[in-house]
């Protein structure tokens, strides 16, 4: 039985349908990504699953517990790393973890060990006694990530886990997330509007647009279904008839000394292709990305850099816990 079962989940805010009839099963141990632009309804789905928001209609079971009928049981088996900062500025990293452990029912005898482990996993052991207001954005995210794992939840929600962070910090966070999920065998649902993040982290991706899941597959299949890699070769004398006979080549185009081929798994067949091309001045292989997938599915580009959250996280983090 899937660990998370979502059936016809819908949430309306007055006239606006934020989540529109979403059905989804997620298996134990899976890292599932909800990929979509800002305002697509990703956070609303997570909020409903975490019992912070009640659905307008539809239902969902997490670890067998109904999110509407048994919210407390649901909260017993989940963890949440929020999009906006949610730790206390005036307290140290360790204090924030300690309070979390108490609230989320970590056994007393295990609290210190769990906190030490968590700090070590996200490399914050030497900063544990520093007040959070002195943390950088990336450090803060790492601490909140460790906190989400602290009470051994069966399911962990990550809402835009790397929003507003620089590329290096983002990649290092991916490593932490992978590491934590493998070591703790946790099912993770994350939302993101970074294609690369979904590609690198997720076992399966649901592409969401205007509250609807419009496509659902593994990153590999998504890209494969785009029809293979595009190989561009600058050459003056290709052997077009033989090229057309090669099985893995699905399309051949030759214009102005530029040969364009659509190839399944170009990396493996490059040698064979080049044998029929003659003298190649320049070879380029472009593998389809989730960008291409998204563009094809929705007919629009997803803006990665801009959008509501970007930068906002940092600004808001400055107000966090200001009291």
């Amino acid at each position: 039985m899937p660990l998370i079962q979502i059936k016809n989940l819908t949430r309306k805010f007055e006239d606006f349908t934020a989540v529109d009839n979403v059905s989804l099963d997620i298996d134990e141990g899976e890292i599932f990504g909800l990929l979509g632009p800002n305002g697509a309804g990703k956070t609303t789905i997570l909020s409903m699953l975490a019992t912070l928001l009640s659905p307008t209609s539809g239902e969902a079971l997490i670890c067998g517990h109904d999110i509407v009928k048994n919210p407390t049981q649901v909260r017993h088996c989940i963890g949440f790393v929020f999009q906006d900062p949610s730790s206390d500025d005036l307290l140290t990293g360790r204090e924030n973890l300690y309070l979390h452990a108490l609230m989320y029912g970590v056994r007393k005898s295990e609290i210190n060990r769990k906190i030490d482990e968590g700090l070590m996993l996200v490399d914050l052991t030497d900063k544990q006694h520093v007040k959070m207001r002195k943390y950088s954005g990336g450090m803060r995210r790492r601490l909140e990530l460790a906190r989400g794992f602290l009470h051994n939840p069966k399911v962990l929600f990550l809402d835009e886990p790397t929003l507003g962070l620089d590329p290096q910090t983002r990649e290092s966070l991916w490593i932490y997330i992978k590491k934590l999920s493998v070591e703790n065998k946790i099912t993770i649902i994350l939302t993101t509007h970074y294609m690369e993040e979904a590609d690198k982290l997720c076992d399966r991706i649901g592409i969401i647009d205007r509250g609807k899941i419009i496509a659902l597959d593994t990153p590999f299949n998504f890209k494969k279904n785009m029809g293979g890699d595009l190989v561009s070769i600058s050459t003056s004398n290709p052997d077009l008839p033989s090229l057309e006979k090669i099985a893995c080549i699905t399309q051949v185009k030759y214009e102005h000394d530029l040969l364009s081929l659509t190839v399944d798994d170009a990396g493996r067949h490059l040698q064979e292709i080049l044998a029929h091309v003659g003298e190649a001045l320049k070879v380029e292989i472009h593998s389809p990305t989730l960008h291409d997938v998204f563009l094809k599915l929705t007919g629009k580009r997803m803006r990665e850099g801009s959008g509501g959250g970007e930068g906002g996280w940092m600004t808001r983090s400055m107000h966090a816990g200001k009291r």
């Binding site: 407390t72 909260r75 963890g79 929020f82 949610s86 107000h319």
Partner: peptide, 21 residues
């Protein structure tokens, strides 16, 4: 008033998602 300020960021959610009454 702090509850309202905590609502504006996600701090209150950290408490609200806890498995407590």
């Amino acid at each position: 008033l702090y509850i309202i300020l905590d609502k504006r960021i996600d701090f209150l959610k950290e408490v609200l998602v806890a498995p407590l009454r």
